[in-house]
Computed example of a mutant assay.
Amino acid sequence: MAALTIRPISSKRDRKAFIDLPFRLYRDDPNWVPPLKGEALGLITPEKNGWYSHAKAQLFLAERSGSVVGRISAHFDTLALEMPATRGFGPGAGQWGLMEAEDEGIFRELLARAEQWLRENGSTRALGPISQSVWEEPGLLTEGYDHPPTVMMGHAKREYRGWIEAAGYRPVKELLTYDLDITKDFPPIVQRIIQSGEKNARIVIRQVDKSRFDEEAAIILGILNDAWRDNWGFVPLTEPEIRDVGVKLKPIVFNDLIRIAELDGRPVAFMITLPDLNEPLAGLNGSLLPFGWAKLLLWLRRPKVRTVRVPLMGVVKELQASRLASQLAFMLIEYIRRASVANYGASRAEIGWILDDNQGMRSIADTIGCSINKRYQIYEREL
């Protein structure tokens, strides 16, 4: 067998090869959704991804006989290094991700090279897979291979779990997504809580105004940073990241699917819901040419989907231990549920990811009749 070569990427051609590999490895997997290649390239191009303003990464390709047979990213986030270790990252924490390989031997060589790079850059432990920011696609899919991921969620081969665990990595944090049939009314007790909130003159649940995108985004970001600041793995979004995420998400932002809860006129909670962009992307094979752009543009004008995804919601820290927090959450979910069914034809929602120790959100999900449909695992090993 020809020798395996692991080398750092160094050119636009290398980045293209890095992006192209999954299209070959997953071509027979009906549940893999090909990303738009331009978007995928943007995530690994420092000039196009604000995450690189506070992070450093090195991408590696594995090649045999001139063909790409594997890939991996080694990286660290300077903001994550400043976190307390009890919140997931902290001093010495490096990460790896974007891992794909034809076989376990290739994976082990790639992982060893990524770990070497991390050690050379001061890391004393490695967490993965995290691809690449915790706000992108953290965790390895370990349950839920039988249906496609929703927008901005990952997919993986079943065998990867065994490879990672055989390499000495131990599970450190599990991320869960929940499935919800949104054509059904919520249980009577939840309906009563919502109706009580609607009678409370102090509470207003409003739609966002996309024409004031930057202002509304700032409000949501303020609540997010307060609500999530003690969560495992939380790294505040920076201005460059907010700018780039805004450009990426603005086309699939719809006023009635994003709501802000106000208490006495002050924003205290929010919920973001996105129509599942993966549904129209599934048939484009990563390219908008020759006619994919027209199909996607038509879809964006009036999207109809089976699924909507709730990637983020939060209630300010001061209210999180109160009954009001649950009431606001139920109201936000119910109002967006109605809009999703009536205006977008949706029949199901995917909520998450949710940290496995986030008992508040898991309790809300259980109460409204959700069931876990996917699990993503983050692993850790001392270097």
Rank of each mutant, 00 (worst) to 15 (best):
W96V: 01
Q95W: 03
V190M: 02
L141S: 08
D209H: 09
G128T: 02
A218D: 14
A201N: 13
H147K: 15
F76V: 00
R108T: 12
S133F: 00
R161V: 12
Q95I: 15
D181P: 00
A218F: 10
M83W: 06
E216Q: 07
E82Q: 14
S211L: 08
E100R: 06
E115S: 05
E100C: 02
G144W: 01
R113E: 09
K184L: 07
A166R: 12
P91R: 01
D146Y: 11
V208F: 02
E104A: 08
G90T: 03
A101G: 03
F76Y: 15
L110H: 01
E136I: 01
W117R: 03
G94L: 00
D103Y: 03
Q116C: 07
R202P: 04
S123N: 10
S196K: 11
M83S: 14
R158P: 14
L127G: 05
E198R: 15
H155G: 08
K157R: 14
T142H: 07
M99S: 11
G97Q: 01
L81V: 14
I182F: 00
A112R: 03
T142N: 07
R158D: 14
D77Y: 06
Q116S: 12
I194A: 03
K199V: 09
E165D: 13
L127E: 05
D103C: 10
P149D: 07
V172P: 06
E109C: 13
E137G: 06
R108N: 14
F76S: 09
G92E: 04
I182H: 02
S196V: 07
M152T: 11
D214G: 15
I182Q: 05
F107E: 06
M152F: 08
V151C: 05
K157H: 07
E120F: 06
L118A: 11
S211W: 09
R119S: 13
T150D: 04
H147C: 09
E216V: 03
Y160K: 09
Q132C: 13
P149Y: 01
H75F: 13
I182V: 02
Q195C: 15
L98V: 06
R161A: 14
Q132R: 15
R170K: 15
P129S: 08
G122M: 00
R87Y: 07
E109H: 02
K210Y: 08
E216A: 05
L141D: 00
I189P: 11
L180G: 02
R125C: 05
V134W: 02
L98S: 02
R161G: 12
A156G: 07
F107H: 00
E165N: 05
F186M: 03
L141P: 01
W117I: 11
D209V: 11
E104V: 10
H147Y: 13
F107R: 01
E115Q: 08
